[in-house]
Amino acid sequence: MYDDEDDDRTFVVVRNDEEQYSIWPQGRDLPPGWVDVGVAGPKTVCLGHIREVWTDLRPKSVRRLAAPAGREPHVE
């Protein structure tokens, strides 16, 4: 389909209720359960943002189960 080097599309960074991140082509309807987090640009920019903010890849529900009693896990 698209070769990353030839991909000049603009993407948006999206996040779901489990605080998992992905990218989505700008202008396309988002899939159910995903929201635009306000970052858009080339694929490399969007993936770079995700690498910076998504430091704990466990879903939110798993992080909550693993958190010590009475403490919420760190959430971006």
Results as ranks from 00 to 15, higher is better:
V14E: 03
E5I: 12
A66H: 04
W34G: 00
H49M: 05
R51L: 14
D3C: 04
G41P: 02
G27F: 00
V14K: 02
Y21P: 01
A40Y: 05
R9G: 04
R51F: 03
V53L: 09
R15S: 05
I23Q: 04
D29L: 15
W34Y: 14
R9T: 06
E76F: 09
L65T: 10
R15W: 07
R63H: 14
W54F: 10
V12W: 00
V75F: 09
R15A: 11
G33S: 11
V62C: 02
G48P: 02
R15V: 13
D8I: 14
I23F: 04
R63P: 05
V35A: 11
N16S: 06
G33A: 10
R9H: 12
D29C: 11
E5S: 05
L57A: 05
V13M: 09
A40I: 04
L65N: 07
D6T: 01
D17E: 13
E18L: 15
I23G: 01
T44V: 14
R64F: 13
W34D: 00
D36P: 00
Q26V: 08
L57S: 07
T10E: 04
F11E: 00
P32R: 11
H74N: 15
G33K: 14
Q26K: 15
R58H: 05
A67C: 07
D4S: 13
L65Q: 13
V13G: 05
G48N: 08
M1I: 10
W54M: 01
A66T: 09
T10L: 09
G38R: 09
N16H: 10
K43T: 02
